[in-house]
């Protein structure tokens, strides 16, 4: 298959998987488990993109994915993009220093990146919003626990998508991306 078509296929599958994961998180989890904090599956998608794409490409894809997930939240697209930018930069800086391909790294990174997301969104909310978000330690802690539990299946799913759409091999350990 031509490279352009493979790229399109990869993008389409990425969007489809993101939509399915977001629906699972907001609807299925809510209907079955109830009001207990859900795992942040959408964040795992952003993490995968940041870890397994070049930095500039990752920022662009994550911006596009922010548009895809925006119907699932009342958060404004501007705030969402701002958080996405800081999150992608933070994760890629860590990736440049410590990286090895595999599920274990992804699970560990998911825990750290969930924590990073909460810190970034809290700081940004304090800086730019008139009504900043509260601490809400309970739900945040649950998200911090639940999200890494789902990291492995999400990693396998996106690895599979990359495999069938013949994406480039994973970057080497600690290789800087420009």
């Amino acid at each position: 298959m031509p490279t352009q078509k493979l790229h399109l296929l990869n993008a389409a599958l990425l969007i489809l998987a993101t939509l399915i994961l977001c629906s699972f998180q907001t609807t299925f989890w809510y209907q079955v488990v109830g009001s207990v904090a859900a795992p942040m599956l959408w964040l795992l998608v952003f993490l995968y993109v940041t870890l397994y794409r070049k930095r500039s490409e990752a920022i662009f894809i994550n911006y596009a994915l922010a548009v895809v997930i925006s119907p699932f939240t009342s958060m404004g697209i501007g705030t969402l993009w701002m958080i996405t930018l800081f999150y992608t930069l933070a994760v890629s800086i860590v990736k440049e220093r410590v990286f090895w391909p595999g599920t274990r790294y992804f699970i560990a990174a998911s825990a750290l990146s969930t924590l990073a997301f909460h810190i970034i969104s809290w700081l940004l909310s304090r800086t730019i919003e008139a009504n900043p978000i509260g601490s809400q330690l309970g739900p945040r802690l649950l998200e911090l626990i639940f999200t890494p539990l789902w990291a492995a299946p999400v990693y396998w799913l996106f690895s599979f998508i990359d495999q069938i759409s013949e994406r480039d091999p994973l970057p080497e350990r600690g290789t800087p991306h420009t």
């Binding site: 907001t26 609807t27 809510y30 997930i69 699932f72 939240t73 009342s74 958060m75 969104s121 809400q136």
Partner: peptide, 14 residues
Amino acid sequence: VMSKDLMSDHLTIQ
């Protein structure tokens, strides 16, 4: 009620 917000800081339902 179908679902709740994707972000736990935003309290909306669908």
